[in-house]
Write a protein that binds this DNA or RNA. Sequence first.
DNA 1: GTAGGGTTAG
Length: 668
Amino acid sequence: MRPFMAKSREWNKKITKLIRNGRLCEARRVFDSMTDRNTVTWNSLISGYVQNREIASARKLFDEMPERDVVSWNLMISGYMACRGSREMGDGRMLFDRMPERDLVSWNTVISGYARNGRMRDALSLFDTMPDRNVVSWNAMVTGFLQNGEVSSAVEFFERMPERDSASVSALVSGLIHNGRLNEAAEILENFRTVCGGEQELVDAYNTLIAGYGQSGNVEEARRLFDQIPYRPDFRKGDLKFRRNVVSWNSMIMCYTKVGDLISARQLFDEMDERDIVSWNTMISGYVQCSNLEEASNLFCMMSEPDSRSWNSMISGYAHQGKLDLALDFFNRMPERRLVSWNTMIAGYEQNGDYEEAIRFFCQMQREGEKPDRHTLSSVLSACAGLAALNQGKAIHQRVLKTVIADTPISNSLITMYSRCGVLGEALAVFNEVKMQRDVISWNSIIGGHAYQGFGVEALMLYKEMRRLKVRPTYITFILVLSACAHAGLVDEGLRQFKSMVSEFGIEPQVEHFASLVDLLGRNGYLQEAMDLIDTMPIEPDRAVWGALLGACRVHDNVELAITAAKALTRLEPESSAPYVLLYNMLADGGRWDEATEVRTMMERNGVKKQPGYSWIELNDKVHVFVAADASHPLSTEIHALIECCDRVIKDLFYATENVLCFNNIDL
DNA sequence: GTAGGGTTAG
């Protein structure tokens, strides 16, 4: 035996293992350090890039490699087909047409690529012309039909198959479930059971159905099936093959975690003889989903080799609890961070309102060579919306045009971002571009944008257009419509819309709707009516409801109701300074100094501190945040000097115009 | 080291 052969085989194994553990960069370093690479070495690394959707890197290796075999070609084709874009699929097809020698895998790769992306006609024409077919070719067609909702074609193909294996049955059963036909799926399984008795394939079909029941939340039925599969083989019956495998256990555990029954999930987990990485990850993610990070972390620590899913579950768990420091700790400790890890951190910061950090992470991610996808872009767009960072948002819009083909959620984020940045024209431009793929969220975004910017009448016009096009509004639509009416002073219209929400659409009013109604009435001077509404509303009023009343009292200078509202607010949020401050200012404005002082004393006695106000400005793609009495900005001294200068100019003008404040003509 | 189904992360 030649020693160097054994050597390169060992290295190839090492590369494969690194790729399996998500350490692609390390695999690349091993590859680069090798002197005796063979075709398998090249193919292994290409496979790593393909698995990680780095198609350009895969192609570069493919073009550079000295000798390509049929596996190299097949790997590249499968990489292109998995990218799903029509351009990439075209590239894959081009390679297929150009390759010197095709095998069954080549044909099946292209067929399933077409089938998965709804191009059944292309899939079918290849299927019909291919020299010979195997069970994989048939299964790919069945799956494709089911994914496109063509259930009868799928069943027809299934029946025409010359031979079937466990994947054929699983494909049909799971496809039927995804088309909402659980009963038919169960029927197929029953037929299959009588035909093939206690074979291994039956277990796979059972597992599919268990998972299907789990998806629809029917744990009892799933458990009934699970219990029908014997735990251990029954030797007396000669039943050697029909027994639970690790997927049966994992699927059942998943059913329990899905409904939050972690006790039962854990019982099964502890009962298992052999757990695989999926068992561990399913349990961890179950604990994460019900916010039990302690147990999640216990299990995580017990794992010998956590993979990227294990790490990312922990990161997302802590991020959801707002513990970004702990999330970051896991993020930093993981052996190799991939796109999902970055996305989890960015989404975590964004959802916790730390928009600057979300954007900072986004920039760092790109510096480290990771390409954003739709998840990244959607989070970052929300962060830009939160900061009203228009230039950043525009730059990301450009990225979107290069990265995503047509994606409704992303377009909706763009609409929201432009709205929040105050450029409704841009928001409308996006809204008009996606005419064909609008959903109710697109409408909510554009209506909300107009309402938010004070264009109540325009918001209502958009709502009417939405109704004309028979788009069914949601409860959020009505929060926005009521807010639009409030801003436009259309009290009667608002009340009419509220009634129509209940009577026409059967939407049960939520506390947010009452807050909007209180705002609608109060803002337009109907303070007593707003108060009466609070007294009679069927839900407990929350801070938004009382806040709306208090704001209205401030505008219309009703001190007595303001006191009621402020009292209610301090009961709900004892630590908030806003109601005290607002009430203090109102009393002081009215010259009621004794009561004002009393409010101030009460605030101090209750240990409430005034929270510093803050504002921000976007300049040269950077967002600068200013907090009162904060000197952390690099140009703090200069900024304060400038403010003082402005202050002087304003004061001079103020006195010069004999106490008549007129900002309109000031040219600073 | 490559093709189809069923279990895990954003």
